[in-house]
Design a protein around this nucleic acid. Sequence first.
DNA 1: GAAAAATGGATTTTT
DNA 2: TCCATTTTTC
Length: 682
Amino acid sequence: MIRKIILTKPQTIQKTASFYSEALNEAQMEVVTKADGAALVLAGAGSGKTRTLVYRLLFLLDRGVRPENIMLVTFTNKAAHEMRHRAEKHLNQDIQNLWCGTFHHMGHRILRMYAKEAGLNPQFVIMDQDDSRRVIKQCLSSMKTHSSRVKFPQASVIQKIISLAVNTRKSIESIVLEQYDYFIPFIDELNQINKEYERRKRESDNLDFDDLIVLWIKLLKECESVREKLTNRFIHCLVDEYQDINELQNEVVELTAKKHGNLLVVGDDAQSIYSFRGAQVKNILKFPDRYPHCKIFRLESNYRSSEEIVSLANRSILNNEQQFRKKLVSLAGSHERPLCVRVRETREQAFFVADQLIELMDQGIALSDIAVLFRARYQAADLEWELSRRQIPYVLRGGVRFFEQAHIKDLCGYLRIIQNPKDAISWDRVLGFYPGIGPKTAHKLHQAYMQFILQGKSPKVLCESQWPPSTLKSAGAKLREFQSIMKGLFNLQEQNTDPESFILYLLDSNFKRMMENRYDNAKDRLDDLLELSRFARHYETVGLLLNDISLKENFKGESFDGSESSERPEQLILSTIHQAKGLEWKAVFILGLAEGQFPHHMTANNPEATEEERRLFYVAVTRAKQKLYLMHPLTRYDRQAGTVIMRTSPFIKELPEESYELAEAMTEDQFDLQEEDTIFLT
DNA sequence: GAAAAATGGATTTTT
DNA sequence: TCCATTTTTC
């Protein structure tokens, strides 16, 4: 027998020391070259955190670490793409086998590799949040044990509670006690619903988002062979946005990094804004306690924002108790003071922004270099209307996600039935399209079908006259079109056709007419579906396509081929602050800096929640490079109460007056009545 | 008994 | 504007 020896190919061309020192400052250089073992990087806003991580990655590769031995966890797919793309650009070649993505992505990848060990049916399909909500709703109606006298929580609230319990590794009871005390009487029922929810998920071979991580942890804990493979594999673990990590994710990180102990976490405690998903600032604050020998690095030079903007941000965050004290120093030079603009009402807020956009563009700032940020989606409504009226192009980030739109899910329903006959939610959805069939009948039809499958019949029995059985014949007559569509899909499946053809087939079948009947803007929606078919080209199987669709976070109007980092189209960005994390613009408007809007009224009287709101404000402010507008509408319109007066946001009031300039904007007729020194606007 | 139509109510942030 | 519950129809 001849011994086989595997040679390691050199992965990259060796970079010289100057390659790093030219691109990085001293502090960043330290991180890149010395962050072995446990390391915490406290990276302030605009301090070149992404750049540092990319160079750390290059450095590791340079040192001969193989890409498959590195795990780089990011918060969004977009961030993952961005980093990979930048690293590949430096190397001038693709980095094969690097594990770079979100927690959910990696969980998915691992569960696919080890489906058998995890006790999963390999054809499992991932549900999104809306699917979870629907399943819970079904659980609710099937149990209907709750008394209708007191209002029982809605499906979406139950979903939130269950998910929060999973992500914080607490019981439902303690979540309810801590955050939903008005549901205390329902704790038993909630536990029951949770049980039923779990049962249904398992029965239909569906995994929800949280399962991707829960089962990954389970695999690491309970399956020794897999644990060995996975912990040996990841010699270096790098975690981005560590301040937003929750207990569940933390556990997966610790288990994975335990063996080699090379755990580099990067984050900014001042930017922790995801507590509603179970994230806790304390994770980053306590990191040095958990790893007593860890190295701590600080990146406190800000290359993004002007001195005035950084100063305002620093002043603001000083009001928070829970934090690592650090001071961000601006290296971007002096510009002008942020402008706090008072307007009479929310519509005038939109007028001001629109007017000012024109002004900024006259000054040579590109529309794509400007963003409007807000706390909650509805705050953008007036502005959207005004922008459309003036024909200013914009994209709204934070609306419905592209892949969560009803028509996309309608089409995927058919594909999911083919992929996984047990998928109860999809059956419910698809059969509901046909007149005369509602949830009850759909359920029975699905049950009847599963009976056939269990008897060993081929899935194609669906298209034959044996199905549905005679007890359901009256419903069966309404399903001719359904059966003919399914027949076509089964045929494609037998021919092993690519996913794109599946979609094109559906768009050519009577599915198209159904869409036209169902939606008044069917044309747009069918265009979206055509777009989906193009997206599907990148996938080999329908199963892989479906699971990626569930995990994609792209919004309507964004491209989703992964090439987004190159050049931005010439349009204004409207975004929630949460969605704006990690991004930057020359000019930024923040809407609704009024009491009740920002900080959000739900957080009043809760000091911890108010601190998180302040961190959110901090994130918003530090997105701006040169110009920052803090908008304060004095009134808002409420359906019941009519016009409501709003006071200045405490986040503005607590700032020293010299940190911003105050302006008042009004329309021409109002201006005539005033003589004070104000900004003139039409 | 189940589906369709009509009415009433409410809205933070997201992988 | 969209969603959930109630009322009406088959």
